[in-house]
Design a binder for these strands. Structure first.
Lengths: 245, 245
DNA sequence: CGCACATTTGACGAGAATCAACTGCAGTGG
DNA sequence: CCACTGCAGTTGATTCTCGTCAAATGTGCG
């Protein structure tokens, strides 16, 4: 695997790292454990694999920037991206030890990440000493599970424009959590081809559906960002896909 | 909730209960804990809800017979069944405490089940004393997670006949695990309408696709059962949906 | 028998995939 | 500086999968 040399961790990235705790506050011991991760960061270019299908997830990471996809391939080349991880989310991560990768974890953009293997191990070994981290990791795992449910509903029962609306709302909320969402606007570095692999649509249809949403003023797409002018309005388009819980 | 009175647990059901351990062997203490569940069984009719969307999964159960579906509704009536549980599988179950139902857990047929709340709590509290049960519960949780990935791929990227083939193979394997699969034949109590809600297809299209598979000799459907004449053959139809592994 | 419900069939239309070509744009090198 | 290249986005024409509507057939059961 080709990786660029470890770069200094920026202040913004430290903030993302600290966000691991989700809503909980961290005690002194936890803060130290988190900051020790700041020196174990690395990056990969787009297209690189972070974890291989079927292997053990022994090296969990926290995404600092960029997007990771959990991809499954069908033998004729079709691809389905089952889940995404953006900044602030654990990836190549399984709460219980010995969990295997159920997909190929691919960097969909250049990705910076921190190794959190040691952090996870220590925290899970003594939950009483690391309550904030443990609840943060559990919450992240739980949200991932929830998103899988959403994804099945999207792919199974929603029309193209509903899928896009539902997906955009999900991304908006997730970026809000890490402070990357300003005035309902967040980064969208994915090509329409990749977007199709996420939503179960062809590239061409993604393009046409996006145009429709733009025409109706439901979504603005400018220079690698999406903006949602009215969340309420977009929610009505997304159907009743029961967000979050 | 309307429930019929608790009935005596049959020998077959005790076997299903014991299957909770998956491949692991149980120690004396575990065996006793499991058999204590045999006296906490109940049943519900088809259509009843076992756990409500958004509520805490505080009363986990083990399915003894019948099928449970995790259903999500869209506001115009469309329904997607995100996951299924058959005999031998935990349902309304979350490995970590305080996990919420991400869907409505519905009995798709008459369902017999055992309450395993106490078992789960005791086992997870002292994993060293109940190694077999803990690993069994973890394995069940893990398989469920895996099936979600499969389900997204099915719904997102597979054609109708591929979805059905993939689904039939999945069911065959799961029924094998509990000894309910004889010569590649297993129960199929779901109506084609429910099948559509599982696979993200219309009732009519399920019907036509089933006919196609039957015509091609890939699937036999007789009196509430499905039979797979050739697993290898059906696997080639299912594409490369990377099963379980 | 008659009722309710599941399965099946036909005709038609809508949503999405496919194929192919064209545009626009950033990066590269002559 | 500008032609050339590669890739993402866009467009049009066409095909195909699948959904919808409606009616008919089949099946278990009181």
């Amino acid at each position: 695997m080709i990786t660029s040399p470890t770069l200094a961790t920026s202040g913004a990235e430290r903030l993302v790292l600290a966000g691991l705790a989700r809503s909980a506050t961290l005690n002194a011991q936890e803060v130290q454990l988190v900051s020790s991760c700041a020196s174990h960061t690395d990056s990969v270019e787009a297209g690189q694999e972070l974890a291989e299908l079927g292997t053990f997830l022994s090296k969990p990471k926290l995404v600092l920037s960029g997007w990771v996809g959990h991809a499954r391939l069908l033998d004729d080349g079709r691809r389905q991206i089952v889940e995404l991880n953006i900044a602030g989310e654990p990836t190549a991560f399984g709460l219980r030890p010995l969990s295997k990768a159920r997909a190929s974890y691919v960097a969909l953009t250049p990705v910076r990440y921190a190794e959190i293997g040691e952090l996870v191990e220590r925290a899970m070994a003594r939950p009483d000493q690391y309550p904030g981290l443990v609840s943060g990791l559990r919450a992240a795992d739980d949200e991932g599970h929830s998103r899988l449910y959403d994804h099945v509903v999207r792919a199974g029962r929603m029309l193209a424009h509903e899928r896009l609306a539902h997906f955009a709302l999900d991304l908006c909320r997730r970026h809000e959590r890490v402070g990357l969402c300003v005035s309902q606007s967040f980064p969208m570095p994915l090509t329409q081809e990749v977007l199709g692999d996420v939503l179960g649509l062809s590239t061409v249809h993604v393009n046409r559906t996006l145009q429709q949403l733009r025409r109706e003023g439901l979504l603005k797409t400018t220079s690698g960002r999406w903006q949602i002018p009215s969340v309420e309005h977009l929610e009505t388009v997304a159907g009743g896909g029961a967000h979050g819980q």
